[in-house]
């Protein structure tokens, strides 16, 4: 079984099973991970599914396009490995990946 771990701001960890082809946001929503809001439902238009990928896994998460960069820019908690989870398509290669959830989704 392959897993991805979401780490809440308070440190609580949630390990969830990888469903290939789904977005990381969908997996978070399907598993009821607290702290991921996804207000726009995956349109890359709200910035409320922000996650901070463990830097050693960042390259595995694919490219960040301009729209996503613009939305991330509006988030005060942005870090260098920040992504919108609706823009990451999950693959088996992500087995073991850790992502942190920011304190607030803006």
């Amino acid at each position: 079984m392959s897993n991805i771990t979401f780490i809440e701001h308070n440190g609580e960890q949630h390990s969830v099973e990888i469903e290939e082809g789904k977005t990381l946001m969908e997996i978070a929503m399907n598993n009821g991970i607290p702290g991921v809001d996804a207000d726009c439902g995956g349109e890359c238009a709200c910035g409320t599914c922000h996650v901070i990928v463990n830097p050693s896994w960042f390259d595995k998460t694919g490219n960040t396009n301009n729209d996503e960069l613009q939305m991330l820019d509006m988030t005060p908690e942005r870090e260098s490995s920040s992504r919108l989870s609706c823009q990451i398509t999950v693959t088996k290669d992500m087995n073991g990946m850790e992502v942190r959830i920011p304190e607030f989704q803006m």
Partner: peptide, 18 residues
């Protein structure tokens, strides 16, 4: 309930929403 349009979407999304 969060999936409403009142805050707008995209780069002009309401800054004071939270």
């Amino acid at each position: 309930a969060r999936k409403h349009l009142s805050f707008g979407f995209g780069i002009h999304r309401c800054m004071g929403n939270r």
